[in-house]
Design a protein around this nucleic acid. Structure first.
Length: 603
RNA sequence: GCGCCCGUAGCUCAGUGGAUUAGAGUGUUUGGCUUCGAACCAAAAGGUCGCAAGUUCGAAUCUUGCCGGGCGUACCA
């Protein structure tokens, strides 16, 4: 419809102002802010007025008077009203055309509504989560994982080909610290013998190390010594290292499965940290890098992008130490180039916290300087910090919110909430009153995860989140459960209608019975969904989808409280409204799916 | 010092491809469960869009300067 209108407007401009003007004007067709203004609005007169230096209102009237709206075309026939308001031209579409078009498309595409095709799909690697193997996942990982997973879903839905990767930081002194503490005081205990979740089991030794090191500073040196043994390939250290790494990986796996985080490829730093030296050498030969007075190989950051240091010189980054040992830059220079070569990637997206903005900008600048064509396509999806009341989270200091703990706390609250609703006697509520214990548990889990994920995704990634553990994540208002509830209500209505007389099939639905304000608002939301998903993928911003799903749920709630469905006055009205209900359920479901949130038929 | 991000209602945030009267949630006040499930709906109150200039017929949105907060600032990961 939007496309058809766009063409009609174009032709109107063409007849009124000539082909050259029409070609040069870039205008949009969008929904107006208030439903009573119409179903679509175009800013074409505004844009033209600026170009022609004329009054927008007069330009708008000229376009409207050109009479293109009655021409013999499908779009022309579907327009009920054209009017000028402000500088905008507003269109009202005949409901039997508009509602049919949107509702039938949703019905037909079902789970695929919201997916788009793209002319030339790109192969994109998205790297996300990327934790350290010395501790369990915490709130920060949750934001990372939930954001990464949602962006992946949006990219896939918008027609791209995505490869999911994580890089596991399994080497370094922090891991040796935890290993040392375990060796020292562990007395051979295992996750099995203690009954602890294995990543928590090992993470506790990391905390223990920090406590002991306060009293005995020499432990830090011992940890360094252990790292050297690891580097040298000491069999005892390596064996222990493999054991504890497996514990942590097994523990994460449980959490990741619960959250729906999956990966096509896992990179271990222990495997890749030696990469990149050849790239550095080649860069040195090309003059992109240079050797400084200490013998380090360095890169001068372009001043126009990075500014200067205190003395007004270009900022300098070391990419390889004089003794030939690697840095993170070395590793990434190697890892990214080998990934692109191996999988023929068009793009790599790194989901990493904003504290590493500088790092990635510098890294990308190096790839550009080295002349890689794909350097322009690298993207750092930077998300802001999660803060607690006492400030930034620090694992060492124990000021973290553990992911598993948070999930089980929320699940407990959800469980209590479900049980508290069993006493409802009015209406036809058939919720948890008849649900088994395992069913209650399943629902509590889906609701808890929905609440947590939506909470993380409702703000754009660049906004900091301040999380107060004393206040639980809400289930009311702008939340995941609100959207899940709207879906469950929709499904409940569908069940009510189905249990009565069979309704007419979609061919015989009389769409002209629809068109009230509440219905138009809802229909707009349903129609916009696919482009919202596309835009979320383009901008790497899942919050756009979260906002849209919420607004759809809101519009649906308003619709069904004002428009009885099962109890509609006539059979045909019931069928028409039921089509709205089913389409709304579809869009809410598909939207939540992009966010990685499941729906429930009953709550 | 330099780079990036942020500053919108009491609180948490949308809106930042200029465009119709700046929106939502929450909190406060009020109304609604014998009528498809109250995790809901309806209504009220609540805003110098950090400040100041500029561009524009028109700026929360673009430009510049300033103020306040955060993150970072090679030879850590």
């Amino acid at each position: 419809m939007k496309q058809a209108l766009h063409e009609l407007i174009y032709r109107a401009v063409e007849t009124e102002f000539g082909a050259d003007v029409a070609k040069s004007v870039v205008f949009t067709v969008e929904q107006p802010p208030k439903p009573e203004m119409g179903d679509y609005a175009t800013n074409v007169a505004m844009v033209l007025a600026k170009q022609l230096k004329q009054n927008p209102k007069e330009v708008a009237e000229k376009i409207v008077d050109s009479g293109q709206w009655t021409v013999d075309s499908e779009a022309g026939h579907s327009i009920a009203k054209v009017e000028v308001l402000g500088g905008f031209i507003n269109f009202t579409i005949k409901p039997e055309v508009w509602f049919r078009e949107v509702l039938e498309e949703i019905e037909e595409l079902a789970v695929d509504y919201g997916r788009s095709q793209v002319q030339h799909p790109e192969k994109i690697m998205v790297e996300y989560l990327s934790p350290n193997t010395n501790k369990p996942l915490h709130l920060g990982h949750l934001r990372n994982g939930v954001t990464g997973a949602a962006v992946i879903n949006a990219l896939v839905a918008s027609g791209q080909s995505v490869m999911k990767a994580e890089i596991i930081n399994d080497r370094g002194v922090h891991i040796c610290k935890a290993m040392l503490a375990y060796q020292r005081w562990g007395e051979g205990a295992t996750p099995e013998s203690t009954g602890k979740k294995p990543d928590h089991f090992f993470g506790d030794w990391y905390v223990r190390f920090a406590q002991e090191a306060e009293k005995d500073a020499s432990l830090n040196d011992q940890a360094q010594a252990m790292l050297q043994q690891w580097e040298a390939g000491d069999p005892g250290v390596r064996q222990l290292w493999l054991q504890v790494r497996q514990w942590v990986l097994d523990g994460w796996k449980q959490t990741e499965e619960l959250l729906g985080f999956t990966f096509d490829k896992a990179y271990f730093e222990s495997d890749v940290y030696q990469l990149g030296k050849d790239i550095v050498e080649a860069g040195l030969a090309k003059g992109v890098f240079r050797k400084n007075e200490k013998g380090n190989i360095v890169f001068d950051l372009p001043q126009e992008q990075f500014g200067t240091d205190e003395e007004g010189n270009a900022k300098v980054i070391t990419v390889l130490r004089a003794d030939g040992t690697s840095l993170y830059y070395t590793q990434d220079l190697g890892l990214q180039t080998s990934r692109v070569a191996e999988y023929h990637l068009d793009r790599i997206v790194h989901v990493v916290g904003s504290e590493q903005n500088f790092y990635f900008q510098a890294l990308f600048a190096m790839f550009k300087a080295l002349g890689y064509a794909w350097a322009e396509k690298l993207h750092h999806l930077s998300y802001a910090m999660v803060y607690l009341p006492e400030g930034k989270m620090k694992s060492r200091e124990g000021t973290v919110v553990d992911a598993d703990d948070l999930i089980s706390q929320m699940q407990e609250i959800a469980r209590t909430e479900i049980r508290s609703r069993t006493g409802i006697t009015h209406g036809t509520y058939i919720g948890s009153g008849s649900a088994s214990e395992s069913e209650i548990e399943r629902r509590a889990q889906i609701i808890a995860l929905g609440a947590i994920k939506f909470y993380m995704l409702k703000q754009k990634p660049t906004t900091d989140i301040y999380f107060d553990p004393k206040e639980s994540i809400s289930f009311e208002g702008h939340t995941g459960p609100y959207c899940q509830y709207a879906y469950a209500r929709a499904k409940s209505i569908v069940r009510q209608v189905d249990s009565g007389q069979r309704t007419a099939d979609s061919d015989s639905i009389n769409y002209s019975l629809l068109g009230d304000t509440e219905e138009r608002i809802l229909l707009q939301k349903l129609e916009q969904f696919p482009e919202v998903v596309t835009r979320a993928a383009e901008e790497y911003n899942p919050a756009l989808v979260a906002t849209h799903v919420f607004e759809t749920a809101q519009a649906f709630n308003t619709f069904y409280t004002t428009h009885p469905v099962a109890k509609a006055e006539t059979e045909s009205l019931r069928s028409a409204r039921l089509a709205m209900v089913q389409a709304a359920a579809r869009v809410i479901h598909n939207g939540l799916a992009v966010l990685g949130i499941q729906t429930l038929e009953q709550m």
